[in-house]
């Protein structure tokens, strides 16, 4: 999504968000992410106004004092930025790919099923299986921090069963243009 993203060309406008909308955003994030309100208060204090940066293809990035915090595509789920995820790794469920896949992940490719099912990869256990279209943190074998954020295309149990084709669509990854933007 952010492989090519130039703030000068792709941003169509910045507006501050109405407080009623902010309330909605806060509520839906708290229900979507695995985070308690106190921690979220640290990320985004209640008094601070959020800025909505509208971009091409209906991507909305929400920033706090110019620093991107999270983004959304259409009315889809909220994704934290990778920097935020590094600080609070537990907010998204984790999947892990093997070492061979890192190279492709950092080039922006979608993650294929075998990367998760091989020895180096891991998926949540069957009793915590994820449905399709869930935001996940993509970790890598032997690494401590997340390398990307994705959206599951298949349920995790299905990934195990099918073991072919795209399992997780990469939304943002280390070194893409969203990563390079530190201030918007």
């Amino acid at each position: 999504m952010f492989k090519k993203f130039q703030p000068s060309a792709d941003v169509s406008g910045q507006v501050s968000v109405k407080s009623s909308v902010q309330r909605n955003i806060r509520a839906s994030i708290l229900s979507q992410w695995n985070i308690n309100p106190e921690t979220f208060e640290q990320i985004w204090p209640k008094k601070e106004p959020l800025t909505l940066v509208k971009c091409r293809e209906h991507i909305s990035i929400y920033t706090l004092h110019g620093e991107p915090l999270f983004f959304q595509h259409f009315d889809g789920p909220f994704f934290p930025t990778l920097r935020l995820l590094h600080k609070y790794p537990s907010i998204l469920p984790m999947v892990r790919v093997d070492r061979g896949a890192i190279r492709f992940l950092l080039a922006g490719a979608h993650m294929m099923c075998p990367g998760f099912t091989s020895a180096g990869g891991s998926l949540p256990p069957a009793d915590a299986a994820l449905p399709p279209n869930t935001p996940v943190a993509i970790h890598a074998e032997g690494k401590e921090h997340a390398a990307g954020i994705g959206l599951t295309k298949l349920g995790t149990e299905e990934i195990r069963k099918v073991n072919k084709g795209v399992g997780v669509e990469t939304v943002t990854y280390l070194g893409d243009d969203l990563w390079k933007i530190q201030q918007l």
């Binding site: 921690t39 600080k87 950092l106 070194g175």
Partner: peptide, 23 residues
């Protein structure tokens, strides 16, 4: 108690977390 943020050391050269420098 809010969970404190995790500190990540970013490489000053390539901006990645240091463990990803090799890529």
């Amino acid at each position: 108690e809010p969970t404190p943020p995790k500190q990540v050391l970013y490489c000053q050269v390539c901006t990645f977390p240091v463990e990803y420098c090799e890529f």
